[in-house]
Design a binder for these strands. Structure first.
Ligand SMILES: [Mn+2]
Ligand SMILES: [Mn+2]
Ligand SMILES: [Zn+2]
Ligand SMILES: [Zn+2]
Lengths: 137, 137
DNA sequence: TCCATTATGCAACATTGTTGCAAATAATGT
DNA sequence: ACATTATTTGCAACAATGTTGCATAATGGA
């Protein structure tokens, strides 16, 4: 069974064309994808279908949301998440030159001490800078 | 001279009604404001004017952008920023109960070590959880 | 192969972000 | 106080993104 099929099966989702191609597209890219990018790449599917598929993937822990300072939300494959809990406490890096946002899985988000009375659920850490590729130009 | 007038003067901006009321509104709230909230509160001004004023305030270092996982960008007053550089490296906290996002000025963003080849510009750290007020219910 | 459940496409709409341009306004100098 | 000029505002129009309802199509299991 293909990788994409396996991911869907693992999360008890039906094997549909759109889902398979979306997962394949995520796998083929090392950076986080915006809705608009998926829409362009997979133009055979309706915008709403992609929208709803992203929602399903989020719920099931197949992808996680990646914050971007430029409006549109991005998404990237999760490494070890389940339907019940996301575990994506790694840093995200946005290159201000090529505008891509990537997961830096090797850097986990440092623990911080919240003020009295505040409780922690999760966090999202976006670092802006210039990526390796763009620095080498 | 009023506080709001002083802020505008300091940044060489004209004293206009919209700008003064927007700054007053920011000052009166301890949490980050979305465009839509300003629009509702200051309904005598056009949506576009508020939009452009936010843009001006961002440029001048009067407000900073606060990322939110729910689509709409929020803004909050800067403490020590100038036209030339923002210095808002503090943690932002979003309460998943009351949905407000606030600046936690007392917690600065921890330094992280980026991989070889990456250079750092700035960062945005959003912690999600439950705020003090909502926890005490 | 049939059926129940689920996913998709389409239409329609809501919200947010963005630009051009003419009219209104604020600052400046007289 | 008034005229001049640069800037700001409101309006219209549009682009992009997010969201829902509903009829039709497809999937997975019986
Ligand atoms: Mn990630
Ligand atoms: Mn802040
Ligand atoms: Zn880059
Ligand atoms: Zn709260």
């Amino acid at each position: 069974m293909s990788d994409t099929a396996h991911i869907l099966k693992k999360h008890h989702l039906r094997q549909t064309n759109c889902r398979q191609q979306m997962i394949a597209h995520f796998s083929a890219h090392s950076y986080a994808l915006a809705h608009s990018e998926l829409e362009q790449a997979l133009s055979e599917f309706d915008r709403v279908t992609i929208y709803r598929t992203l929602y399903t993937f989020l719920e099931k822990g197949i992808v996680h949301k990646v914050l971007d300072d430029a409006g549109a939300t991005r998404y990237a494959l999760c490494a070890h998440c389940t339907e019940h809990q996301h575990h994506d406490e790694h840093v995200h890096f946005k290159c201000m030159q090529c505008q891509t946002v990537q997961c830096i899985d090797t850097i986990s988000i440092p623990n911080i001490q919240l003020p009295q009375g505040y409780s922690y659920i999760d966090s999202n850490f976006l670092v802006r800078g210039v990526c390796r590729q763009c620095n080498q130009l």
